[in-house]
């Protein structure tokens, strides 16, 4: 009996014909790649091109047609508003502070979790909790912790005589975390770090565990102490992973608006405003789609260049 499909009995039925088509590399390749391409086009490329179009037009929620192009007018208008400089400053400041805190804390947490100790499993589970918690639930918790009247943190500070009459931090009994510019920004950084630390730690931990144990033991035998091993052996080996971790968390933090919208709503005034939330306020809440798109696109070239540089650095450090 011949097994050659050209001379063999012609296959019957739809399924058989589909199976035969799938044997051809061109058909199979297109089928396999299809979903990914559709996904990228529908959810990345189209919105992105649409955003560029919107930012160059005078579209509003009431009249969302990209018909009347106005050039770069939206960008110049946005730049001249007071809120823009605040939002830009806060976006960059918050992202930078979050990344610095994350780098230090994730490296420290990794050193802890890479060791064996009693109850390690429990610590690991507790550690991942912030990442597993829904954003809204986390925000409710933090809104209570940072509440202007009922904050338990304030209460503890009063009990420690740091706050309240005779306290170091003034006679008032409340700090109003979310009602003051710098405390508000500090609170946002703190909550962002709390949320991002599990992800950053897992990325760094994966890199840390891939360092051969013999290399660390060799360093111990060579007479290096904890800090020399950390800074001369572990961190250089982690460099590619750390760069990737910084890139990912930076992109996540700089595009993140849920915490701002839930905690401070950018206030008081625009003092804790960030670009993504302001873009949302302008484009959706106020209905000025064009200006909203312009704000959202503002950081794109900066982020693109930063991402390319980071990826190049990661590749280069990996080469050794």
């Amino acid at each position: 009996m011949s097994t050659n499909p050209a001379t063999g009995p012609r296959s019957q039925g739809v399924l058989a014909r589909i199976a035969e088509a799938c044997d051809r590399p061109r058909v199979l390749g297109a089928l396999m790649l299809g979903p990914a391409i559709i996904y990228v086009v529908a959810f990345v490329a189209v919105p992105f091109v649409l955003a560029i179009g919107l930012s160059l037009s005078d579209a509003t929620v009431g009249n969302p047609n990209i018909t009347n192009l106005v050039g770069l007018d939206n960008f110049t208008q946005v730049v001249h508003q007071e809120a823009f400089m605040l939002a830009l400053r806060n976006s960059l400041l918050i992202t930078t502070l979050v990344i610095v805190c994350l780098l230090v804390l994730a490296t420290a947490a990794t050193e802890l979790l890479a060791r064996d100790f009693r109850g390690k499993r429990l610590v690991q589970i507790l550690f991942i909790m912030p990442w597993a918690m829904p954003v809204s639930l986390a925000a409710i918790t933090w809104l209570w912790l940072l509440d202007s009247q009922f904050s338990p943190i304030d209460w503890i500070l009063v009990q420690m005589h740091l706050l309240g009459p005779g306290g170091v931090w003034g006679p008032g009994r409340h700090l109003y975390y979310l009602g003051r510019e710098w405390l508000g920004i500090g609170s946002l950084v703190f909550v962002d770090v709390w949320r991002m630390l599990p992800l950053a730690t897992i990325i760094v931990l994966a890199g840390r565990l891939s360092i051969p144990r013999e290399r660390l033991e060799q360093a111990t035998i060579d007479g290096a102490g904890f800090f020399r091993i950390l800074f001369r052996i572990i961190i250089p080996a982690l460099a590619p992973v750390l760069i990737i971790a910084v890139l990912f968390t930076a992109l996540l933090v700089i595009g993140e608006m849920s915490m701002v919208s839930l905690l401070t709503r950018g206030g008081p005034g625009h003092s804790t405003q960030v670009l993504p939330y302001w873009a949302y306020l302008k484009g959706i809440e106020s209905g000025d789609l064009a200006q909203g798109a312009a704000i959202a696109l503002f950081l794109f070239p900066v982020l693109l260049v930063a991402a390319l540089i980071a990826l190049r650095m990661a590749y280069r450090t990996q080469d050794g």
Binding site: P212, E214, R215, E217, Q218, A219, T220, I221, G223, A224, G225, R232, I233, P236, A237, A239, G320
Partner: peptide, 19 residues
């Protein structure tokens, strides 16, 4: 501690510091 024992070791993988 290994640091204070004057014992040198060569591992099978040589464990050179790659960076």
């Amino acid at each position: 501690h290994p640091k204070h024992r004057n014992v040198a070791m060569v591992f099978q993988s040589f464990a050179l510091y790659p960076h």
